[in-house]
Design a protein around this nucleic acid. Structure first.
Lengths: 340, 340
DNA sequence: AACGATTGCGCCAACGATTGCGTAATGATA
DNA sequence: TATCATTACGCAATCGTTGGCGCAATCGTT
């Protein structure tokens, strides 16, 4: 099998020097039309493709973008990953970049993992998803001034470019939708207080309730781990409240918790949608197949991926970012779990 | 910001030549203990890491493995991707390799996409998933003798290393499980005849029915597109059969179709599990949250990923493969949809 | 003491592409 | 024909790492 043609081979065939070919390929210098034609012909005949390792060595870059995500525990879903990867690969590819995915290593090994990729010149920048408060990855990359875009927020006093889905607006929309349908006693099934995303989402619920001038019963906010089991437990306890305090609608911070809540309602012989309304968050693929189908908030996954890469590419080109922070609105998908 | 230290910097600090440092790093030559200590000290102090681009250029390799998968249409799930990526990244990482994911481009552009990655030396090998009969990617990579491992089979007369989940054994197990529970009229909800995976799975159903000496009613095999809607339609038609031919159990080739079938049964006022048993395939995360939870076949995703990479690494090292073809058995997960 | 064998490490030449500079050839102008 | 600007392309160096070769110093053996 003949090895891949190099600049030298093309040059020999076209009767010029390798540098000239390089200049034609990169449109860097003026070359006479005839020479250019001869060179292009040779390139075509030999099927020449520039060797990326050589290019990268010379240019001190890798044309690779690291993507780190936090894998979900077994039994849960990651409905985002497939689409998110696709959208990023597509946009990055158009600019000649490829993705290098790696699941977040355990906390103590995180910084080393990033250091490795940075120091060996394997990646030019990063996309981080599932960010945390006090996220070590963000702290490290900021310290060494390495280009990255986060998908999610972190400490409010940290200043770094990021994209996020506006969970506050999402829960406000879900709550308002329930208010529109006449509900007045609406409870929330939420995450622990240390979750940033959870706090932001819950805030939207609070805002909607406040602007409808409804007083909030403290018992209406249930906090617990992100699981269907907790959704079930929380809903059960909420339905156990005395009639005048018992909620007629539940907003859950995720589809997974909404599923648990739906089951709790059904276990009690009540009908979801008619007796108690339920909404979720994520629009996981299964939301549409539940009975009744789940009203939920769809994250603009595709858009997020595109924007994140587009922003990172700007950083890599050394251009200033028009917007450091991007907040995208999720879309309320109304299905039967929230009534008629 | 000081740029990353190179061999030259380390050499200068340790008072030797760069090549010597390289030899120490790669354990290639004998160096006196004192010199080695001095060099290692310098490496530590400067935080030296070999530049991958330079290494790759020299070694004519990339230490990258291309992974191509067929993205699922919107509204469906890809429960595999997250775990599969994780398992591959982990094993590859231990051998100093990274993954380069790219969704399958549209059919006509497939070969070009692979050519690009091969010709520019961006990847050393490929993992292909969701293979097809007459798969162009396989044909191309075989033609140019480029290392790859397929996850899935293709034409029976093509000879290439692959891993697959034994769908035949899976459906045999599901069908036998239903036979054990006393069912005699068992129908299958299957894919079109041109699907290789579908044909193999259906075969397992046929085998189990045959070895129980049950005659197969041709009406018991429904074929259609892979969707919940088709599952619903097929189940409805099966339940419309006259009582003596009406199946008491349905094996579906996927969880998605099983969901449709469950809904059809419920729409008719029947109870899944008690009146009609249902099984799926995939153990998508949602299977456990359905009501009743779905009996299904769990694919050994983690194991597949590890094995696929391990095999590819052997090819890349030029070692012969102990097994060209690996068939992994799926695990039957019994839940309530198949009865008590 | 003379010999070959071993060890430790320096030197050179790649790997393939890119870049700034230099220069020969061309054409225009006085 | 001499001068100058412009065009087209060659020259040499560089990016960081590695493999092969060779030389000097050291060691053991007779």
């Amino acid at each position: 099998m003949p090895r891949q043609a190099t600049l030298k081979d093309v040059a020999a065939k076209a009767g010029v020097r390798p540098e000239t070919v390089s200049k034609v390929v990169n449109r860097k210098a003026h070359v006479s039309p005839e020479t250019e034609a001869r060179i292009r012909q040779a390139i075509r005949e030999l099927g020449y493709r520039p060797n990326v390792a050589a290019r990268n060595l010379r240019a001190r870059q890798s044309r690779m973008i690291g993507y780190s995500w936090r894998p979900v525990p077994a039994g849960q879903f990651n409905p985002i990953l497939d689409q998110f990867l696709q959208s990023m690969v597509e946009v990055a590819g158009q600019a000649g970049y490829h993705l290098l995915p790696f699941p977040c290593p355990p906390d103590h090994a995180q910084v080393e993992a990033y250091q490795e990729l940075v120091d060996t010149n394997r990646v030019d920048g990063f996309i981080l998803s599932s960010t945390n408060v006090d996220d070590q990855r963000i702290a490290y990359l900021q310290k060494i001034q390495f280009p990255f875009i986060a998908f999610g927020r972190a400490n409010t006093d940290w200043d770094f470019p990021h994209i996020d889905v506006d969970g506050t607006a999402g829960l406000r929309a879900a709550t308002e939708h329930l208010l529109d349908r006449g509900h007045r006693r609406i409870a929330a099934i939420a995450w622990p207080e240390d979750s940033l995303t959870g706090t932001l989402r819950l805030q939207g619920y609070g805002e909607a309730m406040a602007s409808a001038s409804l007083s909030l019963d403290p018992a209406w906010i249930a906090r617990g781990e992100h699981s269907a089991a907790f959704g079930h437990l929380a809903a059960t306890q909420l339905l156990d409240l005395p009639p005048e305090r018992r909620p007629t609608a539940l907003v859950a911070l995720s589809d997974l918790m909404a599923i648990g809540a739906m089951h709790a309602i059904q276990d009690r012989g009540l009908e979801v949608g008619r007796d108690v309304a339920v909404t979720g968050f994520d629009d996981t693929p299964m939301a549409q197949y539940l009975r009744p189908p789940l009203t939920t908030l769809r994250q603009p996954v595709w858009e997020s991926g595109r924007r994140a890469i587009a922003m990172l590419l700007q950083l890599l080109r050394g251009e200033p970012l028009p917007e450091q922070y991007v907040l995208l609105k999720p879309e309320l998908i109304v299905r039967e779990s929230s009534g008629e």
